[in-house]
């Protein structure tokens, strides 16, 4: 039942329904995470996001089974008629037609999901790991550690993230997918650090930390048992949102020709930037499909992340 229809039932019934919900929540030993998951399952936005993310991960995982062809093989049937003005379109054998080098476009799109997942996951995790360490240090110790770390993040956040990533990639001696991953990760470090620090400082002022102090809990445990775990959920949700930004940034770097120069690697940003742009007049699909894939996946992660943020909000807990 949706929020709105509950609202129409009037306050008394609403209270009754909430009572029921509470009672049913009381039944089993539902854990905190499962409780948030329960709210997520009721949220259509979360469901749409989860479906997109789920499909994306499945496609990436089973790309060799799903893809009709080898993504790097150049097919004679396709190269035979291939010119700069004529890129063969859809046929029964090649459902989305050819790419500019006579390879199966659909298979390359499917394999591209792997690259996106790989770059997105690694860039997010690396950014998360460093961000959590710095944020936790700043939040736990305060003082000069906090001042230095936060000034550093200020500087990084003052620059547009993509510009910073471009600068970082340009600074690297040679470009590979790892330079892209690290550049995108580093750009996200200050976001995680700030979020965790802010969340920990808020926790420091919270009632349960005061109550813990009133029980003589040691400072170390205040940080490790109270401030940190209660702040991590926010960071995990942010990671979902960051994933979307990470794949957009990574695609943008490839699009600008700053990514991995390997022409065999199927990668959405590269497909969009090189093939899509160059042959847009001839075969606009070469641009449309990778662009669509990037947007849909980024959207999926954003929807899921936003819904998660709502679900873990303690204000929605009971």
């Amino acid at each position: 039942m949706s929020e709105r229809s509950i609202g129409l039932l009037g306050e008394r019934k609403k209270a009754r329904l909430e009572e029921l919900a509470r009672a049913s929540a009381d039944k089993g030993g539902v854990s905190l995470v499962r409780d948030a998951a329960r709210r997520l399952r009721r949220n259509p936005v979360a469901i749409v996001g989860a479906i997109i993310v789920g499909l994306f991960v499945l496609v990436a995982a089973f790309a060799p089974l799903i893809a009709p062809h080898d993504p790097v093989q150049r097919f004679d049937e396709l190269t035979r008629n291939l010119t700069v003005d004529n890129i063969p379109g859809a046929s029964s054998e090649f459902p989305l037609g050819s790419d500019p080098l006579g390879r199966d476009f659909l298979s390359r799109l499917i394999y591209g999901s792997r690259q996106t997942l790989f770059v997105g996951v690694l860039a997010t995790l690396i950014g998360l790991a460093f961000g959590v360490v710095f944020g936790a240090l700043a939040g736990a110790f305060g003082g000069w550690i906090d001042v230095i770390l936060m000034r550093l993040t200020d500087v990084m956040l003052a620059l547009p993230s993509l510009l910073l990533a471009i600068t970082l990639v340009a600074m690297a001696s040679k470009s590979s997918q790892w330079t892209v991953i690290f550049a995108v990760a580093i750009v996200n470090v200050p976001i995680f650090a700030r979020l965790l620090r802010g969340s920990m400082l808020a926790q420091r002022e919270s009632d349960h930390v005061l109550a813990a102090r009133a029980l003589g809990v040691k400072e170390r445990n205040i940080v490790l048992r109270h401030m940190l775990p209660n702040s991590l959920t926010a960071v995990i949700v942010q990671a979902t949102l960051t994933f979307a930004v990470a794949i957009l940034d990574a695609a943008a770097l490839s699009f600008l020709g700053l990514g991995d120069p390997d022409i065999n690697r199927a990668e959405w940003g590269l497909m969009l930037g090189v093939d899509g742009q160059r042959y847009f007049e001839v075969r606009p699909e070469l641009a449309y499909y990778p662009a669509l894939a990037i947007i849909v996946v980024a959207l999926g992660f954003t929807l899921l992340g936003e819904a998660m943020r709502e679900a873990i909000d303690p204000k929605n807990r009971r």
Binding site: L32, D207, H208, A211, P314, R317
Partner: peptide, 13 residues
């Protein structure tokens, strides 16, 4: 010591 708001006085996690 016990405080006013029992929910927020307990560690949620």
């Amino acid at each position: 010591m016990i405080f006013q708001d029992p929910l927020s006085s307990l560690n949620p996690v």
